[in-house]
């Protein structure tokens, strides 16, 4: 069974590119365009991994991350934060809130795949 990944980002073109990339690698891909949608999607679809943008409408990535980690049912969901803000404080904030990994935009598609596979234990 292929692993399920949710892409949560409000930048449409970024979503298109990652979606294409992950589908090509055989993943089952879901998409959310804002924080609330992402949270709902995780609860409903139970993806194995969430690629979470920080700057999103309605609910930012940090809040989504915190909400996910507060829910014991979702403890198995891995979270990879993606953000265009690469400052150290941002990184440590994300990791402090329980994210499993952190990537700064722009990223290399190869590295993204490596990180995704690592988090999924593949």
């Amino acid at each position: 069974m292929s692993k399920r990944i949710l892409i949560a980002d409000d930048e449409q073109n970024i979503v298109i590119s990652i979606e294409f990339l992950l589908r090509r690698e055989g993943f089952d891909v879901l998409v959310a365009a804002d924080g609330e949608e992402a949270l709902a999607s995780v609860r409903a679809e139970r993806p194995d991994l969430v690629l979470l943008d920080v700057m999103m409408p309605k609910m930012n990535g940090f809040d989504v991350c915190q909400a996910l980690r507060a829910d014991p049912d979702l403890s198995g969901t891995r979270i990879l934060m993606l953000t265009a803000k690469g400052r150290d404080t941002e990184v440590s904030k994300g990791l402090g809130l329980g994210a499993d990994g952190y990537m700064t935009k722009p990223f290399s598609t190869k590295e993204l795949l490596t990180e995704v596979r690592k988090l999924l234990g593949m």
Binding site: I14, S17, K105
Partner: peptide, 14 residues
């Protein structure tokens, strides 16, 4: 920087 990184991300990925 955030605004610059966002389009760069798409460009690089594509």
């Amino acid at each position: 920087t955030h605004e610059l990184r966002t389009p760069l991300t798409s460009i690089r990925a594509f």
